[in-house]
């Protein structure tokens, strides 16, 4: 006997009925690596962190990120970076500046020529990291020092993320129209549902009182 469900899609799966034996623990990376996603809310705004996605490669990560983070909210651009490629400073307390806490460190790996790095700042715990700017450096450590020189005095900074620009997949300017939401999708906005007229009409006709 296979399982019969109220959902015809489930019935069509032909699932065996009854107790199933426990599954083996899922192997490591069954759910892939993680990527971190940044979006641009409107033209000219700084890119802001929205959250992670799991994906097998950069291209799929971009598709998942687009689906997850731009489906329901205004978006004019998206960046993604593999979590592994992002260097994170310690976290300071709210109101403090983490640049005052980190000491200059020797580079672990250095390039011959300076390369661009993207710098993200967290201004308050619980908020999201925002793009502060781009610096040129030969290592992560140097990039952090550069970031401190260029952006380090702009108010409290709780935490800094540093990532090489070449590791950030950025949506292209010429693909801008992919972010346009067609107006026929209003059915998924709260504003499309106006129930008060129906309720008022019903109450008038039936003289019910809301207690």
């Amino acid at each position: 006997m296979s399982l019969t469900s109220l959902d015809p899609r489930v019935t069509r799966l032909n699932l065996p009925e009854g107790e199933a034996p426990a599954i083996e623990p899922k192997p490591e990376l069954d759910q892939f690596e993680t990527y971190e996603v940044f979006h641009q809310k409107k033209e000219g705004a700084a890119y802001t962190y929205v959250g992670p996605v799991h994906a097998p490669n950069e291209e799929v990560a971009f598709l998942f990120a687009k689906e997850q983070y731009s489906r329901r909210a205004a978006c004019t651009g998206m960046w993604i970076a593999r979590t592994e490629h992002i260097q994170v400073t310690p976290y300071a307390g709210d109101g403090e500046n983490v640049y005052d806490m980190v000491r200059a460190q020797d580079p672990t790996e250095q390039s011959e020529q300076p390369e661009p790095y993207e710098i993200f700042h967290l201004k308050k715990r619980g908020k999201a990291h925002t793009h502060a700017g781009r610096v040129m450096a030969t290592s992560y450590q140097e990039a952090l020092q550069e970031a401190r020189n260029q952006y380090g005095d702009k108010g409290p900074i709780v935490n800094v993320w540093v990532v090489m620009s070449k590791h950030v997949l950025q949506s292209a300017e010429e693909d801008k129209d992919m972010w346009t939401t067609i107006p026929e999708k209003k059915y998924r906005e709260a504003i499309a549902y106006k129930v008060m007229d129906k309720i008022t009409k019903y109450k008038e006709e039936h003289k019910t009182t809301a207690s």
Binding site: E28, L29, F32, E33, T34, E36, Y49, G51, P52, P56, N57, V60, R82, T83, E84, I86, V88, A128, H129, W161
Partner: peptide, 14 residues
């Protein structure tokens, strides 16, 4: 089939 053999798991950052 999709898994990159060089993949390495890192916890999401935030």
């Amino acid at each position: 089939a999709l898994l990159n053999p060089k993949a390495k798991y890192v916890r999401p950052l935030a």
